[in-house]
Each structure stands twice: as C-alpha cells, then as structure tokens.
Design a protein around this nucleic acid. Sequence first.
DNA 1: CGAGCGGCATGACATCTGTCACGCGCCACT
DNA 2: AGTGGCGCGTGACAGATGTCATGCCGCTCG
Lengths: 204, 204
Amino acid sequence: MSRTIKVLLAEDQSMVREALAALLGLEEDIEVVAQVARGDEVLGAAREHAVDVALLDIEMPGATGIEAAARLHADLPHIKLVILTTFGRPGYLRSAMESGADAFLVKDAPAAQLAEAIRKVLTGERVIDPTLAAAALAEGANPLTEREREVLRAAADGSTNAELSKTLHLSQGTVRNYLSTAIQKLAVRNRAEAVRAAREKGWL
Amino acid sequence: MSRTIKVLLAEDQSMVREALAALLGLEEDIEVVAQVARGDEVLGAAREHAVDVALLDIEMPGATGIEAAARLHADLPHIKLVILTTFGRPGYLRSAMESGADAFLVKDAPAAQLAEAIRKVLTGERVIDPTLAAAALAEGANPLTEREREVLRAAADGSTNAELSKTLHLSQGTVRNYLSTAIQKLAVRNRAEAVRAAREKGWL
DNA sequence: CGAGCGGCATGACATCTGTCACGCGCCACT
DNA sequence: AGTGGCGCGTGACAGATGTCATGCCGCTCG
C-alpha cells in the first residue's frame, strides 16, 4: 500500500501550524488534509476528512489535545493519535497514554522524528521518548485528589482564600485544608510552590 | 537585485525551528543559511554566514532573542532584525524596539506574514502588529524599579521572604517593602498576582 | 459490617505576608 | 544648597496563610 498518509493537524499558533504543514508537505507519502486551531474543532474536522493520523498539540483553546485525543479515540478509534507538545511533563505523557495516544513527541525533539513517528504509529507501533517514559514511571501517579487539584487550579492566579471559598462554594477553612494537604503531598512549603510543582509534573 | 535573502533562524524548539525553515524554504527568494537553538549562539553564527535578516524567538536558553537583537544591532547593524514570539506582550514589543528590532511578529499570526515581513524589513520598512503597538503605547512604560523586578523575579517560584532575603542579600523587611511597592504599582493584592501581572505585561 | 478514604466543616494556634511610618545615605537635577 | 527618587533598613501591626485536632457523612472494599 503506497497511498499517502492523511494527517489532521491541530495547533493553535498559526505560524507554527502552517510551518509544520510545510515540513510534512516535504514528505512524499504524507499529506496534511485538515488543519484546526482549537481543540474542540478536532472531532468535526476528523469526521469530514478521512484522516489516518491526528497530530495534536496539547495547549489549545476550546479543549486540550489530550481531551481531543480522548474523544477521537472513543468516536473514531481507527485514527492514530500523535501528541506533540512544548512541555515534556511526565503527567502529560501519562494522561495522553490513558487517552489512547499512540505517540508522544516534544517540540524540541529533532524534526525528523515527526514524520517518522507518523509512519510508525500506522504500523501499530508506539512512539515515546524513553527518558520521558522513565520519568513518568519514576514519579508515580498523581497523588492529588480531584478537589485538591480544583483548589490548586483556582489558586494558581493568586486568588486569596476568601475568593477561593466563594468561587468554589467552600468554607475558607476547607480551602485551607485542601491547600495544606496538597502542599504536604507535593513536599513544598506554600501554595505558590505547590502550584509550580503540580504544573511541572503535569498534575494540575 | 534578485539575490536570495539570507536568513538566520534562532529558535530553541528544534521541531518548530526546522518547520519554520521548511516554510521559508518554500519561498523562492529566501534561503535559511544558519540555524541556532540558543540566544548566545546568534552573534557567532551571524558573523560566519553573511546574513541579511535574523529571525529571533524571544524565549531561548543562553540569551533571549531581545538580548541577541541588541548585540546584533550593536555589532552588525546592517542585519535586519525580526522578532518572532509566542507571547504578544506589550512590554516585549517595547523592549524589542528599544533593542533595534525592525519587525515584531507573534506566532499566532498567519504564516504568510513571516516571509512578507522579511521582505519588508529589507526595504527599510518596520512591521508591527497595530493592535499590539496600541497596547504597548496605552499601557505606558514599566513602572517597576530594577530592584522591584529583581525581587519579583526571585519570588516568582514561590520562595518565602526568608529565602528571598538570603538569595538577594537583603533584610526580610526590605524584601517585603519591595514586594509591597510592586504590589501597589501593579494594583494587585499579593505577590502571586503581582508576578502574574508583571509577566503578562512583559515587565518581569 | 467495620475500616478507611474522600469531601466538608470548625476552631485554635503559630507563622508568614502586606502595610505603614520612619530613618539614613547616595546621586541627579534645578 | 535643596529636593526628590531610589536603595536599604527597622519596628509595629493587621490580616492572610498553613497546621493540627477533631468531627460528621457517604461510599467502597474486603
């Protein structure tokens, strides 16, 4: 079979998106058949275009690439999923895999790996940076409960306890308790460090 | 004159860098003659390669694209400078212009603008997003003193006052005073918000 | 069914943070 | 020579934050 590989490209920064399209355009056997700039446009575009592989950025408006991957995996399971991201956060890798991703690439890997990964996933192979995989396994699963994550996310912009208690409909004491347990689980010493730590791990 | 335009490309994420090179490679009159991944490699590469235009990302290890622009502007003033960045922060635009940049593009602008900007700067034209320019003028200059910026930068990762006082060789009271004035100048209510606000403006 | 966990809450306590008033020295500008 | 901005510091105070003990409810798992 030497049909061309049909790729859907999802990435919010147009310049990067079109540059990636140009890059893939150089490959004889690859054709970019659709481009979208938002996570919530992925599924629709995939339905319209007979796509073999979806190349998804994580950080996108509308829905993250990981959420988009989960939906594609559920609705159009024959499409192979390649996650492409700026941040090699172990937690991202973990959740990408749980969402059915076939490959996980970071943007500072050599460009040649992109086309290579696209070809490999079509043969059923999985493509993951071994260093990242090791990191993801080493750090273990996300220890934070759903509520703790929620509070951390809400606290990320510098809101005070009083504001958090209003937006989350909790008492101030409860907010402080959640933050306190999160701080302990992450082995840091205040909410700001907790937010940073959780972000870096991809646990936010 | 129909010599090809020789471009130096500085961007730390290889996949993006090579994709941009592919994109520019599609243009008949443009040739990417050098690629670097760090800000501190820009000057050396520019010296070796007879470059017409330097295309510089801001966020890079070694030195920011803005610092690299300043050095190029001082040492090789005939080279035109195009800043390309993810973040359309008004403060970035301002300091880019002060460093001698000829064009300022954000990565979510259409890809076509890139080649266009490269051609325009060579005719002596300046290329700036009008919306961004307006924002930069509207917000005024950075109100923070050098020390306030220093303390904010150091506080950005969630360090406590005690830690800040050690790393900055100041008393705890002084650290708090600087943070307090920064918080007031930025019209926010705590250090975390101050860090966010300063980042968003490009004042960090 | 009992144990344990997660969600939610309270109250008390120690510490951290942000503000304010004030002082000193240095430098630049008028 | 005086004024004002900035760097740096102190001390005092109010309010925010983090910790701990403790309790209740509902769910799940052995």
